[in-house]
Amino acid sequence: MAETKIAVYRFMSAGCNGCDVQILECLVPRYKLGELGIEVVFTPEEANVLAVTGSLNIKGAEELKKAYEKLKPPRIVVAIGNCATTRGIFSEGYPIVGPPDRLIPVSLYIPGCPPRPQAIVSAIAKVLGAHLDEEEDYWKAPEGFRGRHEFDVEKCMACGACAQVCSSDAIEVSDSDGKRLIRINYARCTFCGFCQDECPTQAIRLTREYHLSTDDKETAYVTNEVEMLRCHICGSYYVPSEQIKWAIGRIMDKVAAYRDLRKRLEDAMQICPTCRRKIGNIENAKRLLANLTIKTRKS
């Protein structure tokens, strides 16, 4: 490492403060920011690193550009927190123009809401090529910590319940080529854990993993792919196979009397709702026809 001192200037616009408090906490000796020879300064002119937090609103935008211009080389920008990475939960906010990388080049993203101070210090150390002893207990996230998600691929049936309850629109469900893809963008997530609570098969778990820094935010996803079922009549893919199995299983559990009907239920489920409706209509038509015939005979 060359002997350039690292001086960080913090810039916030349209965040909640949470990340800013975490940056302050990095100054606490046990987080070793000092050991890395990093100091926090109060004007952009003194700084060569810019730490941005918040999803950036229209008012902060000009100020951000100004601050960036004033930085000394090498002018490194670090986006701290999910707001600064993807706009996070404020994505649809009307005054929001961020994330900051729309205006200035960002070299490192540290997702989290907020990221632990440990995550911030450790990410910076990694960039500097410095070694940090992360032996002490507090480097491990405690049990019950809500960090990056993990899918249990055996259990996930791609029903999409998680996407419905997500507090931050962080989960996408998309179907293509006979497969359904569930994508969790943990750089947009609030780590609320609603997905974990709501999943009917307990297939999503928020783990204790919190080292999420990356220079490419397109990699900040956890995904799972599940096969879809094909309709026997029209041939379109319409529902994840596992979901059907799960649904039938539930019905069997709930109403024992239906057990004999399993085969017929399974067959019925091989047909997509659109076709099922059509068949229903055919039957109605047949019944109507039959009734009419009987009536004509009588008269």
Partner: peptide
């Protein structure tokens, strides 16, 4: 400089989802 339009965002989410917003 910190304005985010939160009150507007509140009317785009369910009561439960809004917990995460209120907090932020």
């Amino acid at each position: 400089y910190v304005h985010r339009g939160v009150e507007d965002l509140f009317t785009k989410r369910t009561y439960m989802q809004n917990l995460a917003l209120a907090e932020r």
